[in-house]
Design a protein around this nucleic acid. Structure first.
Lengths: 121, 121
DNA sequence: TCATAAACCTTGCATGACAAGGAAATCAGA
DNA sequence: TCTGATTTCCTTGTCATGCAAGGTTTATGA
């Protein structure tokens, strides 16, 4: 019995990975704009509030990148019986970028939904 | 006078490229599900109805990929005083995938909007 | 024959998501 | 003291997509 490697579920799962590109940066910046948070806190908060699972292998490289781009900054603090936590907050640049991202996101989703529902411009 | 290469407009433009990943495949499939179309027709139709500009360098490789994955099929027809047109339609697999994509897209945008507006799950 | 327009194609690069594996700090108990 | 569990963070390599730039083919009209 042969088995195709491209079953529908796999195809959708791969597509979802592509769809998330850019989106995760957006929601991380937005979450940090609400309040200072550390890595694990971001992951659990976003999972709880939006049902979006952000893997560690995605989050940490992303946070490092955002810090290198000076969109966020960090400070170390003691952990709760474990390794120290790294708390992140937005820089001024980060807040400005986030403000520009919001209408960009809105425009894209509105455009797509307009196509989906066949409404005119 | 120095000039930073990372001006806000560039940063947003790059981010927008990332955001479109996956989305373009989705809207192309959706457009072709409505009716058979050729490349230029897709570009102009999507630009007009959704204000989304799909460059040729994006569209043609995408169409070739979708055809290789047997999500769309094509037929040649005469052009309007120019090169022949390649008309594309969805295959059964393509229609099935599209039907699975729609709720995936909805869930993602709803989740993000829930975060943005601070509503609870 | 040349220019123009319609339509399509190719190459190479930039970039983000993530699986897998790992490392460091703390604490509890044997 | 050693071991294991828990919390937290990090690194590497792979895969996929979008797209700019440049090119090709077909037909038409001057």
């Amino acid at each position: 019995m042969t088995r195709k490697s491209d079953e529908p579920r796999d195809v959708i799962a791969k597509w979802e990975v592509q769809l998330r590109k850019g989106v995760l940066e957006f929601i991380i910046l937005h979450s940090l704009n609400e309040r200072e948070q550390y890595g694990f806190e971001l992951i659990s908060g976003i999972a709880e509030r939006a049902a979006i699972n952000v893997p560690e292998g995605t989050l940490y490289p992303l946070l490092l990148r955002l810090q290198k781009e000076e969109l966020i900054s960090s400070r170390l603090a003691e952990g709760d019986g474990g390794a120290p936590r790294k708390y992140y907050t937005l820089t001024l640049q980060g807040r400005e970028l986030l403000q520009a991202m919001i209408p960009t996101w809105s425009k894209l989703t509105i455009s797509v939904d307009r196509l989906l529902h066949g409404a005119a411009v």
